[in-house]
Design a protein around this nucleic acid. Structure first.
Lengths: 214, 214
DNA sequence: TAGATTGTTAATCGATTAACAATC
DNA sequence: TAGATTGTTAATCGATTAACAATC
């Protein structure tokens, strides 16, 4: 049901997440089947690449009707999602943190922010977007109680490493890091850096130089 | 002064942006020179990769002292930055938009948000973080007046394509897109997608499966 | 069957890594 | 000089692309 080899690259995982959203839209529109080239067009990739990704997933299409939307969605779900759902911890309830709380609340119940933390005492013990904000001292207890193993770091760069240490000590195995700092984490902890400044500088550069070199 | 071949890949541009921040920290600490392996350690890459990136930039180090921090910073600046600075337009002043306004105000004067736009009339004609919020009807005029060619889309997915069309018509050549939609844009317009949901799902997957396969 | 699609294999391309010469 | 670093070239690895067989 899952992958055949288990050697699924980061990029393929990201694309499967992307395909899922596209498939959800198609399903909502009543589509029962989809061709690789249709999905490719929506995802901005090639049909061959889509087929290869779905092969890696272990989901087979038919040469007559392409891929069954419902079955493919179920297969991606089985691959990406934790069976009982996975709570996420948010550390840092500043402007970005609040935006993330809104963004990751409600729309995906299987992967939603289940607890937020902040050092600022005035923010602790409040509820934002139906999510309780805790003082940092409660990190370990709350994470254990809620079985949270995924966290988002949205604190200033100076505080990021200390937060990462505390998260790792509390059993977190995956971190989405918005702070522009390279985190040192124990082996086995996965870190994904999301640096918005780098992204914007890339856009500014290619806006000047031209999108596609000939 | 710029690149030798001109064929600089997206990844190299992103890394140069990353190196710049690290170099700024080193400069603030008083360092005058830096070795490739030091920079590599801070950036989480290999020394050879750093040297190759700086070669692509056209900046030479010395085998005695490595790279001169100030000179390298100047070279990256000459490569990445628009000489007179480049204003950025933000479309969508919701939770995420407000967070972006805070994030991209002040800290990098060369690439700051110079104008914000929203369809909500109650948000228009206000000032958030010293940035004027305009009604969408003023998009073209304001962008022309401020010579803005870079924009950030932070609107709901349904509205994103229409915003992209309006931005392209107003002369924007680069878009940082936070909406989970594949934008169709005219040739020559560069689009960078930043999908936070995909990033979080990647983290959740590798948190379960283990960070590094053997 | 005919036509289009999927799945598989081979070829190509690019990036990373390794090895080595040049430099201070 | 000796040692460490940079710059360059060759080898390796992985992903993408192209070509083809299998399927409905």
């Amino acid at each position: 049901m899952a992958s055949k080899t288990g050697a699924i690259s980061e990029r393929v995982v990201a694309r499967l997440s992307q395909y899922r959203r596209l498939l959800n839209v198609l399903a909502a529109e009543g589509a029962t089947h989809v061709l690789s080239r249709e999905l490719a067009s929506l995802a901005g990739r090639t049909a061959a690449q889509v087929r290869r990704d779905l092969m890696a997933l272990g989901y087979a299409g038919s040469s007559a009707r392409g891929y069954e939307v419902a079955g493919l969605l179920a297969s991606i779900r089985a691959f990406l999602d934790q069976p009982g759902g996975q709570g996420v911890a948010l550390v840092g309830v500043g402007n970005l943190g609040k935006a993330l709380l809104t963004h990751f609340t409600g729309r995906r119940p299987n992967l939603a922010i289940a607890a937020a933390f902040d050092t600022d005492p005035s923010k602790a013990n409040r509820t934002i977007n139906q999510c309780r904000v805790w003082a940092m001292g409660h990190l370990k207890d709350v994470l254990k109680a809620k079985k949270i193993r995924v966290a988002i770091i949205a604190v200033p760069p100076e505080a990021a490493q200390a937060v990462a240490d505390a998260l790792a000590a509390a059993g977190v195995r995956g971190i989405l890091n918005f702070a522009p700092v390279r985190l040192r984490v124990p082996e086995g902890v996965y870190v994904e850096d999301l640096d918005m400044t780098v992204s914007l500088e890339k856009v500014a550069y290619f806006a000047r130089r031209g999108a596609d070199a000939p």
